[in-house]
Amino acid sequence: MRVLGVDPGLTRCGIAVVDGGTGRSVRCVAVDVIRTSPDDDLALRLLAVADAVDEWLDRHRPDVVAVERVFSQHNVRTAMGTAQAGGVVALGAARRGLPVAFHTPSEVKAAVTGSGRADKAQVTTMITRLLGLAEAPRPADAADALALGICHLWRAPLRDRLAEAEAKAAELARRHRARITEAARGAAKGAKGTTS
């Protein structure tokens, strides 16, 4: 599976492509950071992010796009910009019919370091090791994008199995309710027949 991981942001948007093989093997295909100037108009910044993401989607043809879910931040302006950049990424993927998965920062940290409270340095160190990179990806947004790709590769099979189990459980519950309803109707008909 090939995953495009995106750590959304307006000033710096981390973007990476990671391939997953058998077991937990992973390989870095490409990694970079999309940059826009805070002095530019918001619409132009979003357009620049969209254009760069479109180029990556067309060049690398991922199977799925993994985006960091915006979590509560103290700076509302930063959170808004991050959410807007994430929306642009999701839109680009949706236009190509690609599934988009959103992962929380703690989920990503737990997947790659074993701790949802790991700091950026720990994430970068683990990403460098896991991918066998000669040097740590810089800035941290690049490492975060790689971490998102790895997180999705490792978590997607479990999510798929859980979704499948939930669907089966819902179907069994629906059938069970239908049998109970049918049995109640049969009992009501039987009771009506004996009183007439």
Rank of each mutant, 00 (worst) to 15 (best):
M80S: 06
M80Y: 07
G81L: 02
G81Q: 00
T82A: 01
Q84R: 08
Q84A: 08
A85R: 01
A85E: 04
A85K: 04
G86E: 01
G86L: 00
G86Q: 05
G87R: 05
V88G: 03
V89H: 03
V89P: 03
V89C: 02
V89L: 05
V89I: 06
A90G: 10
A90N: 06
L91A: 15
L91E: 06
L91T: 13
L91P: 02
A93M: 13
A94C: 07
R96C: 09
R96T: 14
G97S: 12
G97R: 03
P99G: 11
V100T: 15
A101Q: 12
F102T: 13
F102L: 14
F102Y: 14
H103W: 14
H103I: 12
T104V: 14
T104G: 15
T104R: 15
T104F: 10
P105G: 14
P105F: 14
S106D: 15
E107Q: 15
E107M: 15
V108F: 07
V108M: 14
K109Y: 14
A110W: 10
A111L: 12
A111D: 09
A111K: 05
V112F: 10
V112Q: 05
S115K: 11
R117I: 11
R117T: 13
R117Y: 09
A118M: 05
A118Y: 06
A118K: 08
A118D: 08
Q122P: 13
V123C: 09
T124Y: 02
T124W: 00
M126N: 06
M126P: 00
I127T: 04
T128H: 02
L130Y: 01
L131P: 10
G132W: 10
G132L: 08
L133H: 05
L133Y: 11
E135M: 03
E135D: 09
E135A: 07
E135G: 02
P137F: 13
R138L: 08
R138K: 14
P139F: 03
A140E: 09
D141F: 01
A142E: 11
A142M: 01
D144Y: 03
A145H: 05
A145N: 11
A147L: 08
A147T: 04
L148G: 03
L148Q: 01
L148W: 00
G149D: 10
G149F: 04
